[in-house]
């Protein structure tokens, strides 16, 4: 278990005030916050890489606030991998193990095991500069896990990757968490990533923790305008993916069926951007696979754009411009049709 008590920081433009977090052993904990919220410094402080002026860090019931980073047993993975360029992949993974001074063949088998776990065994002889982004991040994970850390800190581990590699590394993270029962603190600015991976999420904004809760709690009951804005940037549903007829894939959520495009099956999340939903007063005949009828239950005026909440009865947040809003003459309680393409829904 790792606990951060009353942590405050003020370094070169970043400010964290009175951060209190408690992460249970084996928990996948997400810190969600906009870019520039001081997330990296928060992680570096936990790892002991950044001096803490006020506050405490506790690791498994022991205060480690003043302990040197090399004595904490905390694994760290940066967004852009930061592999040792002068060492091979094997050398990178061995780096921390060499500090333990255990017999050579034991180290060797440990490296082989970790490399196998992350699927990088075939890369052991390569230099980091020859690897793709996804491969580098898996090696960085292997290196951090090699020392069997008590906590693994991940600083935006998926942000530098292309969508395909991101998917792959995300799967890898889920697997590591499950197989090693690892305690993970993962910071990100990506709401979907947070929901896909987190057991619990802490939303960080303006240097403070604004809300802590399960993904459901965060996107169903945001406790503030700030969290709501994060949550509103996407319509997020949890449901189940199954095959429909005619080669279609269906995402079923609370009795509503949405056509989606995804290779995934079973329990999953789906997200839809408010700006990808078309609003009309008559049902549209188009190539878009999804058309739902609903009632406007809420109008949220943001100046030149307007957010409408439409209940079908599933709630959808839709974005329209002020001009469309006025031309369609929309009002609360109106019946409207929502149209969106199957491919506009991201299943994860």
């Amino acid at each position: 278990m790792i606990e951060i008590r009353n942590l405050s920081l003020d370094v070169g433009g970043f400010r964290l005030e009175d951060i209190n977090l408690k992460v249970e052993s084996g928990e996948y904990f997400i810190v969600l916050g906009p870019t520039g919220a001081g997330k990296t410094i928060l992680l570096e402080s936990i790892a002991g890489l950044h001096p803490i002026k006020s506050g405490e860090v506790w690791l498994n019931g022991r205060e480690v606030t003043a302990l040197e980073p090399e004595k904490r047993g905390i694994g760290f993975v940066y967004q852009d991998y930061v592999l040792f360029p002068h060492l091979s992949v094997r050398g990178n993974i061995l780096f921390g193990l060499k500090q333990t001074k255990r017999p050579k063949d034991e180290l060797r088998s440990r490296v082989d095991w970790i490399a196998g776990l992350l699927g990088v065994s075939h890369l052991l002889g390569r230099k980091p500069e020859t690897l793709s982004g996804g491969e580098r991040q898996k090696v960085a994970l292997a290196r951090a896990l090699s020392i069997s850390p008590q906590v693994l800190l991940l600083d935006e581990p998926l942000s530098a990757l292309d969508p395909h590699a991101r998917e792959e590394v995300q799967q890898e993270l889920r697997q590591i968490h499950r197989r090693l029962q690892a305690t993970i603190i993962h910071v990100t600015h990506d709401f979907e990533e947070a929901i896909a991976l987190g057991d619990r999420i802490a939303v960080l904004g303006e240097g403070r923790i604004i809300q802590v809760g399960t993904p459901e709690q965060i996107f169903r009951q945001p406790n503030s305008e700030f969290v709501a804005r994060f949550a509103m940037s996407r319509n997020i549903f949890s449901g189940e993916v199954r095959d429909g007829g005619y080669g279609e894939t269906i995402f079923a959520v609370e009795g509503t069926e949405l056509a989606v495009v995804t290779p995934l099956r079973g329990k999953a999340h789906a997200s839809l951007r408010p700006e990808d939903i078309l609003i009309s007063q008559e049902p549209l005949i188009s190539s878009a696979r999804n058309c739902l009828r609903g009632t406007i239950t809420r109008i949220d005026n943001r100046g030149s754009t307007i957010y409408l909440t439409v209940s079908t009865p599933l709630d959808f947040v839709c974005l329209v411009t002020r001009r469309s809003f006025e031309e369609l003459n929309l009002a609360q309680g109106d019946e409207v049709y929502l149209t969106f393409k199957a491919s506009a829904i991201h299943v994860f």
Binding site: E44, E68, G75, F95, G96, T100, A144
Partner: peptide, 13 residues
């Protein structure tokens, strides 16, 4: 500098 930081987390003084 972060290379040194990573080294520290991996147990290096």
């Amino acid at each position: 500098v972060r290379l040194e930081k990573v080294a520290r987390t991996l147990g290096a003084s």
